[in-house]
Design a protein around this nucleic acid. Sequence first.
DNA 1: TATTCTTATCGTAAAGATACGATTGGTTTT
DNA 2: AAAACCAATCGTATCTTTACGATAAGAATA
Lengths: 101, 101
Amino acid sequence: MKRSLEHIEYKENTEALARFAKALGHPTRIAILKHLDKQSCCFTGDLVDVFPLAQSTISQHLKELKNAGLIQGELKSPKIKYCINQENWKIAKSLFKEFFD
Amino acid sequence: MKRSLEHIEYKENTEALARFAKALGHPTRIAILKHLDKQSCCFTGDLVDVFPLAQSTISQHLKELKNAGLIQGELKSPKIKYCINQENWKIAKSLFKEFFD
DNA sequence: TATTCTTATCGTAAAGATACGATTGGTTTT
DNA sequence: AAAACCAATCGTATCTTTACGATAAGAATA
C-alpha cells in the first residue's frame, strides 16, 4: 500500500471505532465472540472443534480480537481461558451506539 | 490466501454483521459516514476537499460503502449526491445493537 | 462542436489479511 | 526424565486492501 506521507488526523473516536469495526469485520471473529458471549468463556480447543479451521488459524483470530481489546486470555493450565473483555466491550458498545445515534 | 475447500456456514446474521463491520473498518470511511450524517448528504468533491486523499481514493471508499449498502448515490448533474441508505442503516444499527446486547 | 467539470475506473505498487502445516514453548502427567 | 497435551508462533502462499496518477465517461456550458 502506498501510504500518504502525512498521517491523517481523525477525531479520536473515529480511529477507535474503526479499530473495533475492523476486528469485527470477519464472520469467524463474529462467531467466536457470539460463542464466547453465550458460553461466557471458552478455551481455544473448544473453538477448534466448532469451526472447520486449523488450530493456527483460530489462534490468529483470537490474537486479533485480543489486540483489539475485545477479549482477554487467562492461563488455566494447561489451557487458556478466553473471555470477553467487559471493560472494552462497553466502550465498543457505546461507540457504535453513538455512531448509529 | 489459501482457502478452505468447503465454504463455512455461518448463521445468516453473522455474515451480514461482518460485512457491515468490514465496511466500517477504516477511519476514512467512518469519517465519511459521520460527515454524511451531519450534512445529510454531500458530493464526492466535498469529501476530496475535506480529506488529504486523492480523488480516486475517496471514490474507492465511496464504492465500498455503496457495495456494503450503507450509502447510495444519486445523479445531480454534473455531480453525484451521496446520502446514507436509511433502510440498510437501520438494519446495520439493529444488527450491532443485537450483537452488543 | 469543443471545452470544462465531475466522478468512476484502470493500472500499478506496496502492505495487510487469511489460511495452512510445522515447529516451539510451557505445563501436566506418566 | 520422558511423553503428552495445549496453544502460540514461524514460515509460506495467495488474495485483498489501500493508495496513487492517469485515463475515460458523462453531462453541462461556451
